[in-house]
Design a protein around this nucleic acid. Structure first.
Lengths: 172, 172
DNA sequence: GGATTGGGTTGCAAAATGCAACTAATCGGC
DNA sequence: GCCGATTAGTTGCATTTTGCAACCCAATCC
């Protein structure tokens, strides 16, 4: 990916894409949620090349999503476990998964997410207003926050203006 | 990425990673949400190479996330707009964005998501049980659905068993 | 009709990825 | 304490993907 493209400043999507936007990082996080922790487990369960796995684990550790710790019982093995940051990706993974099931062929009804205690299906992930109504993209505004850099700020202002012109479009 | 690794069958995360797991696809979708539609707009706002952009737009159109249509008013320009599937990625983008803001340095307070009508901040995206309690990863079970292929089924069963052994781990 | 614009394609260099072979430390058996 | 096996890497090399710049062609503007 390029060094200096327009909005790559502190745009949150750009930043998360830089970190997780490759063919493996998200899979590794998913594996970690499924209980993998050792180098070998990731390798075998994902079928990832070992040098790439090394590289990604290091990157994820540096980013603070995984913690690297030598095992107490066997000093050959290294345990990678999700940190608080890593576990906070939980809603992202579920949202992605639900989207896949609904919109990609071959993914429908391959996994059921249920609450362990009750066995009931969880809700579909939604964007909610402060008072709990479900919002869609058209009802949302993205404003530059206090720490937005100039490029991001300009981009968001431009988007706001564009949104004004469109007003009502609904068809797909 | 490899051709045939263990769980790449119909695992939803694997499938969405295959589609959006590169440095640009998600950025393109984000741009589309921000109002971009023309080839040039994507190119300039993202700083993406034109051959790569061509490739990604085609892929996203094939996957049904974007719709490609020649403009009515100027037959040189092509409009790419989000389909229903594409717009359904909205919660995913918001979840990713919120995660970035909370867990990546330089992303904090760069964007504020507010409801257009009221100006109020939206809620944090959560995983909710059927009756509306917030769940975390430990409270969730992933069961193979009716269409899970054998590899995925085996993987999920293994994860369930592993989860049994762990029971209570909370530290990070 | 000539220059410009929009949306590409093509060729080539650079970077990322995949694969297999090799290491270094640790373990378990004896 | 030695020996083979296991774990987590590393290294070298072939293949694939990216990025960049130049080129192309139809539609549009003047």
């Amino acid at each position: 990916m390029s060094k200096a493209n327009p909005c790559h400043g502190n745009c949150p999507i750009a930043r998360v894409t830089a970190l997780l936007g490759d063919g493996w990082s998200l899979m590794i996080i998913r594996e970690a949620f499924l209980g993998s922790g050792k180098f070998n487990e990731f390798e075998k369960r994902l079928g990832i090349a070992r040098n790439i796995l090394t590289n990604r684990l290091r990157k994820l550790v540096e980013a603070g999503l995984l913690q690297r710790k030598a095992s107490e019982t066997d000093r050959r093995v290294v345990e990678y476990r999700l940190t608080r940051s890593g576990r906070a990706l939980f809603p992202v993974l579920i949202a992605l998964s639900q989207w896949s099931e609904q919109h990609l062929s071959d993914c429908s009804h391959s996994v059921r997410y249920v609450e362990r205690a009750t066995g009931e299906e969880i809700q579909r992930i939604k964007v909610l207003s402060a008072d709990g109504r479900e919002l869609d993209a058209g009802e949302l505004a993205m404003l530059p926050g206090p720490d937005a850099d100039p490029a991001l700020k300009a981009r968001l202002v431009a988007a706001m203006e564009q949104a004004g012109h469109e007003a009502a479009h609904a068809a797909s």
